[in-house]
Design a binder for these strands. Sequence first.
DNA 1: TTGACATATTCTTATATGGGAATATACAGT
DNA 2: ACTGTATATTCCCATATAAGAATATGTCAA
Lengths: 127, 127
Amino acid sequence: MARAATTADVFNAIAEPRRREIIGVLVDGQERAVGDVVRLVRLPQPAVSKHLGVLRRVGVVTVVKRGQHRMYRLNAAELKPVHDWVRMFEKYWTHQISRIKERAEQKAAEAIGQAHGAKLSSGKNEE
Amino acid sequence: MARAATTADVFNAIAEPRRREIIGVLVDGQERAVGDVVRLVRLPQPAVSKHLGVLRRVGVVTVVKRGQHRMYRLNAAELKPVHDWVRMFEKYWTHQISRIKERAEQKAAEAIGQAHGAKLSSGKNEE
DNA sequence: TTGACATATTCTTATATGGGAATATACAGT
DNA sequence: ACTGTATATTCCCATATAAGAATATGTCAA
């Protein structure tokens, strides 16, 4: 297999910097025509159309035709999986002070792991 | 140009599901040998080594040799950019009740937009 | 040294880009 | 119908995978 399609999921879709830029333009929840996005992100129109196409296929944006314009709007809910996933690591940077706390938790976890008989590496040279 | 390298930045690195899985294994901050990761994620060892290589190049994990093992540890700080970016959209799902609030804000923004001279065509249609 | 184990690297191959250029499609106004 | 505007699509191409197989490298132990 090759790399997953950019439309495979949100994580792949937002991996592209320009797509994040485009999302940024729509962050206010307002709908915008393609041309407006083009002006704001300063990319060729075909490029923007393609990127919007990817975002649409993943559900991150929605479209509605209005006259000769296509109005795109952010569907932020689709970004929640990313937020949910990365929130697992929030504790690591929320308070720099918490490093001490982390250490403690780590030690605790370590102890539990040992008690549980979790077989880690074969060597038992670890303290 | 082709697609950006998976090692181009954290966003590209975590786009791969298996890599997120591997990160998940290291979420407790504990260091683990490659073999342990292999057992936990149930992927061929070369695949795991490659994925860990990508994560290491991006800085999401760190390695240290210990005997014949290579101990990998999560460096969660490198994931902060993702968290920071996606947090821009947090408000859209934090309280479902906030939809009302959003509407209000949207209206306000819309008004400002109009005043700014944003041209929105009239008429309403869909397919 | 020999052998067993742990991990990385080097192929190959099928697939998917993203950008640019050119073109097609759709719609609005006259 | 004709023209201008807005947006999407197609084609080409350089590049980068990710998985699998095979192999190489590195390290411990007897």
